[in-house]
Each structure stands twice: as C-alpha cells, then as structure tokens.
Nucleic acid binder design. Structure first.
Lengths: 213, 213
DNA sequence: TGTTTAGATTAACGCCGTTCACTTTACACT
DNA sequence: AGTGTAAAGTGAACGGCGTTAATCTAAACA
C-alpha cells in the first residue's frame, strides 16, 4: 500500500501534463503550434478537458509564460553564483546567461517577450524577485566595488538590460539562428556581445592616447 | 473626358486598397485583427478576391511589412537631412526617429520586427539601401569628423542599433504605452534615451576626476 | 444505498485560411 | 459585329481553430 504522498505524486496530474505539453509545443513550433487541440492530443485527452484547469487559452499561455520566466531566471541565477561579487566578470556572466537562454530557447524566448505584450497588463506577478533584482544587485555591487561608475542603479540596469535584450532580439529577428554576417565573417551572438563590451565600458567617445593598462 | 493618367489614378486599384486595409488593420489591432475576411470586408469585396492579387495571407503580410519598412525608413531619412554631417546631433536625431516611429506606430512596429522573424529568410529585399545604410553613413561620418572613436563602422552601427532597438522593444513589451516607472517618476522612451546618451558616449567605466569640458 | 461532484467526453457554433467551380466583365482580333 | 480569351469577382464548402453546452462516468461521501 503506497503512502498518500506517493499516490499524489504518481497521480496523472493532468494540469502539469497540459502545461508541459503547451510549453513544448511553444518551444518547438512557436505560437502557431500551440493550439488547444494539439495540447490535448499530446496529453492524450480531449480538447475541452483543458477547460477544467484553465479558463481559456490565454490563461494557459499566461501560465506557460510564467514558467518560462522561471526557467529564464534559473539561467541568471546560475550566472551570478560563484562569481566574485561586484566584479565585471559577474556582470559579463549575467549578460552571457541572458544570451545563452535566448539562443538555446529561441522560440520560447521569442514568445516570452513578444507574447506578454499582447496580454495587456496582467503580468504583474512576474518580475518581482526575478531576473531584474538579480541584475540590479550585481550592478549595485559593481558600483560599490568601484568596478563601474556611480550612477542611478536602476538606470544602469535598464541600460545594460536594454543592451543585451536588443542584441538578442535583433539577431533573432534578422537571422533565424542568431548569427550576423559582418564584414565577411559570421558572428554569433556571444562573439558580438564580447566585441560590444569595450563599447559598453569605454563608450564611443574619441579615445585619448591612453597607454595605461 | 479624363486623361489616361487620371483614369489610371482614379481606377479602383483593388490591390492598393487591399494593402492599405491590411496595413490599417494591423496597425489598429495587431496581428489577430488582420484576417482575409476582415480585409475583404473593409475593401468591399469578397475574401476570395484577394487571392487574385496575393498568393496567400503570408504573401500579403509580407508586402505590408515591406511597406512598413519603407515608412520606417522615411522617419530615418527625415532625421538625417538638415543635420550637420558627422555631428553627434545627427546620430542622436537618428535614434530619436527610431524611437518616434516605434512609439507612434506601436502595433505596426511590433509586427514589423516580430513578424518577419516567422517568415523565414525571404526578407532579403528589405534592408538594402534602407535604414541600415543611413545609420552606417552617419556613423562613418561621425568617425571621420572625430565625433566618435575610430572602430569598425559596422560594429558600431550594430551597437547603436541594438541599443535603440532594445530600448523600444523592452519598453513596448513591458509597458503598453512605452513608459517605464523608475524610482517613482515615470519615464517615457525619449527621456530614457536622453539619459542613456551619456552612458553610450562615456561608457560605464569609473569616471576619473575629469574637470575638462 | 443513493447522492453529489469533479473530470472527461461528444456535438456544435462561429471564425479562420484556402480551394473550387462558376459567373461576370473587358478587351483584342478577325 | 461577333467571338474568344483572360482577368476579376462570387458563393459554397473543407478542415482547423477557440469555445460553449449538454451529457456521461466514476470515485467520494452520507
């Protein structure tokens, strides 16, 4: 006789199955691939059964997106731990994690940031405590450590976020494999990110003859 | 008796009417609002008639997007003329035009850069001679004039483009009216852009005691 | 035992993109 | 003037979509 907990855990848990099916369909084939009937077929249930767990398709998608942001935050979490607090390396690692998530979950990423523009405002439960606060803490640490200049932390976070977000969205929207043909050679997102780092740090001002380190 | 030209211009020109209806539907209600039947109804024709001019919906959308990029380029064109060649003002004006287009054509802008990610590669006829080359020329001029530092122009263009593109997409996807709540006060895209300019120019490096101009 | 209820099902509605078979229009050619 | 041809437009229909309504099933509880 199995324990009650084991029973619960082994239970079909249709809701979870639906969410996973929806996430996979979204990640595999983009928004068009996610239909109630397709989700139901993958779960092995009739389409209308989904309505026992989600009010409608939009509610289902909203949950999937929330799960997506959790996975996204996982990438960022992994990027900060074990990196020296306040170091440029930590900041760089965050940016790289952002890019890595976008490239490794291309379709998903696209949906994450394109989809929740349609769903009007209701995504208030997402950002709190998530990636943004991670980013912000890293920036604040870097300022305190003198790694970057003093400024409004929120503004700098937004600036860096904008920078990395623009990089990946632009690449994803131009080249389906996040690649950019540039003066003959091909550059992938991480390479571009690396080349941009000098711009981000030193700016575009004409460089004085600085032969310092 | 009207001239031949006048006749041609006054002719119904169903194709143009279809394109305009599709563009308006897209700009007004986003992608979901654009259906063949809706376009047909607006033009005053049956849905199947559209197939005399466009192979299918995707082809229609593709043309609409191409028109959108033309309009977009118009914003950029307007930004460069009458601005001193190679000046920071010209670069700033380009960025502001980018933002202005995105804000004034919110739905349209979203579709422009979200949509042509789906349509696989086929958008090769778009960028040539368009906004990118404008941007590139302005950057090259600014380098030659010593306004910004010497570097690979393509890289700098991509850097700046990324910067402004990320700013608007991030704002559009977060706040439906391209507004950002920031330390209590609300910032609109142009304000943010202005605040970012110092970062772009001087970078995030710790500022030395520079009391120079 | 009978009753309730959560979960699943089938049927159906209206909208979608698209195809098909058909009619209408307009113009070129003998 | 009459005919042929091709373009432009039509309504019906197909399969797929999100969603609703009515119905069934089986376990839980009294």
């Amino acid at each position: 006789m199995t324990s009650r907990v084991a029973e619960l855990e082994r239970a079909p848990d249709t809701e979870t199955a639906i969410l996973e099916a929806a996430r996979d369909l979204l990640a595999e084939g983009g928004p068009d691939a996610l239909s109630m009937r397709a989700v139901a077929a993958r779960v092995g249930v009739s389409a209308t059964a989904i309505y026992n767990y989600f009010e409608n398709k939009q509610a289902l998608v909203k949950r999937v997106i929330a799960l997506g942001f959790e996975r996204f935050d996982g990438y960022l979490q992994e990027a900060v731990v074990d990196r020296p607090k306040g170091s440029r390396e930590q900041l760089r690692s965050l940016g790289e994690a952002y890019i890595r998530f976008a490239v490794e979950n291309r379709e998903y990423f696209r949906v994450l940031f394109a989809m929740h523009a349609d769903l009007p405002q209701q995504i208030e439960e997402l950002p709190e405590g998530g990636g943004y606060s991670l980013f912000r803490q890293a920036v604040a640490d870097a300022m305190e450590a003198g790694t970057i200049r003093q400024a409004d932390p929120d503004l700098v976070v937004l600036y860096l976020w904008t920078h990395v977000h623009g990089l990946v969205t632009l690449l994803l929207s131009c080249a389906p494999d996040a690649r950019c043909r540039h003066s003959g050679e091909e550059l992938k997102a991480p390479d571009l990110f690396e080349r941009f780092r000098d711009f981000v740090y030193h700016g575009l001002q004409p460089q004085p003859e600085r032969y310092e380190t």
